[in-house]
């Protein structure tokens, strides 16, 4: 595959990229520590849970070259499960979240068994179709509460900290978010991550080296579903709602869009993308413009004009700092 055919800029030397990623992580941490003093914290928590969804999509798209249009299934199912166990069963935040994330991850195993058999657009279509199946299930199932969804999910407490306190809630979401960020950082800078990138660039070569691309893709998919599930459970915790839009394909599209706008194959791209898109969604809702139209235009503009996304294009400025 020649350079223009690949998804991301991969000419940056490894050590250099690593440093940039650490700088990125530090900036993200600083931003989310300082921002709640200036920005409405619920906005930031929404952005963080969406950013986790974006990161999970990006893990597959940016590092394995697999475009998933089905991540709403994990995000939404986890949100529903969290809501169900926290509200109806009274299991508390920690246990409910554990069950919800396990449920979403298990669903990821099922998806992965089927989806990693095909690549490219077939993979995208399969994930979309499987997620639609989950959507139908959630429409019909009893525990999802139909069109109303699960409302008033209790926040409770975790490790003795009451999450009714907004600063505690923010701290908890931030910690989970940072866990996900470091989790992705660890994956992509491990030998396993190098294998993923090798599969993205040249799967035949990987096969010829005696490794099975499908096994690696399978594991990457499950890890990605795990992340998306965390995002969904956190979203349900913050908004105290789990409803059908969480499992709808538009949500999967949101995940892809955040990765794309922020920068496919960059560590902090999806976070920047999530902040941008959540900001745009809220802004447009105020002036009454269609959010879907804006997102569609954003998709087209990004693909046509700045394919590397915000963070990727900023990376170009790097040469001026040498």
């Amino acid at each position: 595959m020649n350079e223009t055919k690949t998804n991301v800029q991969s000419n940056i030397p490894v050590l250099d990229r690593w440093n940039l990623e650490i700088i990125g992580i530090v900036l993200v941490v600083l931003f989310f520590l300082v921002a709640p003093f200036f920005i409405y914290p619920v906005f930031l928590m929404k952005a963080m849970s969406y950013a986790i969804l974006g990161m999970s999509v990006n893990l597959l798209l940016g590092y394995v070259g697999l475009l998933s249009f089905g991540h709403a299934a994990f995000f939404g199912l986890s949100a529903y499960m969290f809501g169900h166990f926290a509200k109806e069963m009274d299991f508390g935040v920690a246990l409910s979240m554990l069950i919800a994330v396990s449920g979403g991850t298990l669903l990821g195993v099922l998806f992965a068994m089927i989806a990693v058999r095909r690549i490219e657009f077939y993979f995208a279509m399969i994930t979309l179709a499987l997620a639609q199946l989950v959507y139908f299930f959630c429409v019909q199932a009893e525990f999802t509460g139909g069109d109303d969804g699960l409302q008033g999910i209790p926040r409770g407490e975790i490790l003795g900290f009451s999450l009714l306190e907004n600063s505690h809630l923010y701290g908890f979401v931030l910690l989970m978010f940072l866990f996900c960020l470091l989790f992705v950082f660890r994956i992509i800078n491990s030998p396993f991550g190098e294998m993923l990138k090798a599969i993205r660039e040249n799967p035949e070569r990987v096969t010829s080296l005696g490794c099975s691309p499908r096994t690696y893709k399978f594991i990457a998919f499950v890890l990605s579903a795990f992340l998306a599930s965390i995002g969904g459970a956190l979203k349900a915790l913050v908004f105290q709602i789990a409803a059908l839009p969480d499992v709808h394909w538009l949500m999967s599209g949101d995940g892809v869009l955040m990765a794309l706008v922020g920068g496919i194959g960059t560590l902090i791209g999806p976070i920047v993308g999530a902040l941008f898109i959540v900001w745009a969604q809220d802004g447009l809702a105020e002036i009454g413009m269609s959010v879907v139209v804006m997102q569609g235009l954003l998709f087209m503009a990004t693909v046509l004009l700045f394919r590397k996304g915000i963070v990727g294009e900023l990376g170009r400025l790097k040469k001026y700092f040498r």
């Binding site: 070259g65 269609s290 879907v292 139209v293 569609g296 693909v303």
Partner: peptide
């Protein structure tokens, strides 16, 4: 986008689908 990875074409047409549906819905 023909010279790029196939997935970009899919992303572009996904965007078009959102725009067309969104405008008609609006």
């Amino acid at each position: 986008l023909y010279h790029l990875h196939h997935l970009y074409g899919m992303l572009l047409t996904f965007g078009l689908a959102l725009v067309v549906q969104g405008v008609v819905l609006d």
